[in-house]
């Protein structure tokens, strides 16, 4: 298992990379916000979960978060649990990464990751640190602009179209639950490492898509009629 075991069953991996050069302020007109957001406040996040069924029986086994540091470098941190009992420690650690003025950046996170974490915090009897934070969900502007233009509006499509990212040996997100479960049941960590790799790429792409989308302004829909 890569990374450092910061609590029993909770692993932290960190990487600091050069990734794009954001302006100091991010234009948020695309989200119909009134003010631009300081880049230092942004926290991109993405969870890997045990499934898509929803409800109280689905959990996140990995939370990835990334932000640009003062020096312009991109810092990626990922929390992975290898026991169920470590979930509480993971939730607490992630909460510690959030400030009152943090602005979350996600892809479909308003509908998926944030409610799922809200459920997990509730079940762990912890306050939900996401409550009240600003949240830029990039799926919506991407949909408004490119629905009907691209074959779909998934993040993988957006990153290819906007950033030219082509993934190599990527583990599809749908196989993430099985990868974690296999490890939990004593199997090899090979695929779990690929999940982490996938998650890290998602975070980089999020940041890239954000910069492309923030330039669009309150973009009108594409010239293609939207069904």
């Amino acid at each position: 298992m890569p990374g450092e075991e910061i609590a029993s069953g909770l692993f932290l991996t960190e990487a600091v990379v050069d990734w794009l050069s954001p302006p100091p302020l991010i234009d948020t007109t695309f989200a119909r916000w009134d003010e631009a957001v300081g880049t230092a406040r942004l926290l991109h996040f993405d969870t890997e979960t045990t499934g898509l069924a929803g409800g109280t029986g689905t959990r996140a086994f990995m939370i990835g978060a990334a932000h640009w540091e003062q020096n312009g470098r991109f810092r990626i941190r990922q929390l992975t649990i290898t026991t169920m009992a470590a979930e509480t420690a993971m939730l607490r650690t992630f909460a510690g990464w959030l400030r009152d003025d943090t602005v979350l950046v996600s892809y479909n996170g308003k509908s998926y990751d944030a409610p799922l974490l809200a459920t997990r915090y509730r079940l762990a009897r912890l306050p939900n640190p996401l409550t009240g934070l600003g949240h830029l969900d990039l799926l919506h502007p991407v949909r408004r602009r490119w629905k009907g233009v691209w074959e779909n509006c998934r993040l993988a499509t957006a990153e290819r179209q906007l950033l030219g990212v082509v993934r190599d040996d990527d583990l599809p997100g749908s196989e993430a639950p099985a990868a974690w479960l296999a490890y939990l049941r004593g199997g090899p960590a090979t695929n779990l490492r690929r999940v982490a790799h996938h998650n890290a790429q998602d975070l980089r792409s999020l940041a890239g898509v954000l910069l492309r989308v923030s330039g669009l302004g309150a973009c009108p829909p594409a010239a293609v009629p939207i069904a």
């Binding site: 499934g51 069924a53 109280t56 169920m84 009992a85 939990l184």
Partner: peptide, 16 residues
């Protein structure tokens, strides 16, 4: 379900 210590946790990707 997955047993860990004295806890039985739901682990499947399904909505029973």
């Amino acid at each position: 379900l997955h047993r860990e210590g004295d806890r039985w946790e739901w682990i499947a990707d399904s909505y029973p």
